[in-house]
Design a protein around this nucleic acid. Sequence first.
DNA 1: TCGCAGTTGAAAATCATTTGCATCTAGCCT
DNA 2: AGGCTAGATGCAAATGATTTTCAACTGCGA
Lengths: 131, 131
Amino acid sequence: MGETKKRSTQQREAVARALEGAGGFRSAQDLFDALRNDGAKISLTTVYRTLQYLADEGSVDVLRSKEGEAIFRRCASSEHHHHLVCRECGAAVEIESAEVEDWAERVAERHGFTSVDHLAELYGVCRKCAN
Amino acid sequence: MGETKKRSTQQREAVARALEGAGGFRSAQDLFDALRNDGAKISLTTVYRTLQYLADEGSVDVLRSKEGEAIFRRCASSEHHHHLVCRECGAAVEIESAEVEDWAERVAERHGFTSVDHLAELYGVCRKCAN
DNA sequence: TCGCAGTTGAAAATCATTTGCATCTAGCCT
DNA sequence: AGGCTAGATGCAAATGATTTTCAACTGCGA
């Protein structure tokens, strides 16, 4: 009930491919531009719709840029993880860290908070962009 | 040079007071509503302008809610710190943790990233809201 | 008290994102 | 191979948050 069947269309595949090729976090607009440059026949609306769908399915991670824009990335693991993002080129490395998980748990408990969740992202300049 | 002198006006003071009284993260709209309820004579535009100014001055911290809305908080320390935010009432506790700083530094270095900066926020439900 | 740079508010302008709707199309059925 | 229909797409209009425009207003130093 409630679930609608999903179809495989060329625009969905194009978005998936673009996301794959990007390697880092990209905004819907960025992906749209890249797709258009590759000659893909797709609308910005569909890029948004596809990204939202992929995010719901958990196959992409969503973050917010400083300006509040949503940025998306195809992630290898669907487990909870963090990122080390290059602020120049958007390239990102997935990070896992029991350390942070423990810290979050501990701090929350100490302050009487429950149902704790957390967000932790690192921003820097990658070797390539550092010149 | 280029800096413009700042004046002390009743609407700026009202925003500062509202922020002070809030105790947690609030959106511009929230603050505006609260101010209006208190009978303050102020426009939403001015709330935004004042918050932006305070954020630039470093006297308030800005975060983004999941929906991408900007939320602001008057912070005690102007040092780098994190927050433990109640997702029910917005109440927040300031957290300091050399642990996280070290982790960020270490991870970045391992991956060849430089000029590292990080964002780490914890979300949960505070004792009061847990009932 | 004057003058004016800084400030304010209402409305218009932006920007990212979503939605309405009429038109397509993937893919199962025959 | 042709049809049928739920799902998908695109454009344009709608939303919502935030910013800008600009004319009117007000601290505050002279």
